[in-house]
């Protein structure tokens, strides 16, 4: 199986040859790869060098926590990559974004109003949890469409708080 894996700007062509071998950009390496029982922790021995990392999938890409650094990795096969490039690579921005509570807590304040134009990175809502006030910011620019909560409300994890169009 051949994959094209992208870390930030760097592209690696990785081919899984068999259980014990893979090639990266044409160079063949010996691998010994294991999942540490029941955890998202993986152990890799690559040509005798031992690595351990957290690997998990989030928001459309793989996250690899290795030696205290978090690497975002996009893993695609050739067909997926071609498809992505054909669509210009960009994620379409037409659909609504729903701000969801990342944890249970209490809404302290909502610094925006319905219909307000906002920029990426603007604070949308202040949520208090674990005795800390947390600013939830907008991942994109747009217009606040619907605010579903009020200051003082207790919200559950993943509850939709407001939407941005």
């Amino acid at each position: 199986m051949k994959y094209i894996s992208t870390v930030i700007e760097s592209e690696y062509i990785i081919e899984i040859l068999d259980e014990k071998h893979l090639s990266i950009n044409g160079e063949v390496h010996t691998i010994d790869f294991e999942e540490v029982d029941g955890q998202p922790v993986f152990s890799l021995i690559l040509d005798g060098k031992s690595y351990e990392a957290f690997v998990y999938f989030e928001e459309g890409e793989w996250k690899v926590m290795l030696h205290g650094t978090l690497y975002p990795v996009l893993v695609e096969d050739e067909r997926e990559k071609r498809l992505r490039q054909a669509y210009g690579g960009g994620v379409t921005q037409t659909s609504e974004y729903h701000l969801k509570a990342p944890m249970p807590g209490m809404v302290v304040s909502i610094p925006v109003e319905e219909g307000q134009q906002i920029n990426k990175g603007d604070a949308l809502l202040i949520l208090e949890s674990m005795k800390m006030q947390n600013e939830l910011r907008s991942p994109r620019s747009g217009k606040v469409t619907r605010i579903r909560v009020e200051p003082g409300d207790h919200v559950e994890k993943k509850q939709t708080l407001l939407s941005v169009e």
Binding site: Y12, I14, I24
Partner: peptide, 16 residues
Amino acid sequence: SSDADIAAILATLVAH
């Protein structure tokens, strides 16, 4: 960092 290639390999192996 020189570990980006290792991260790429790890993610690919898990995805695979």
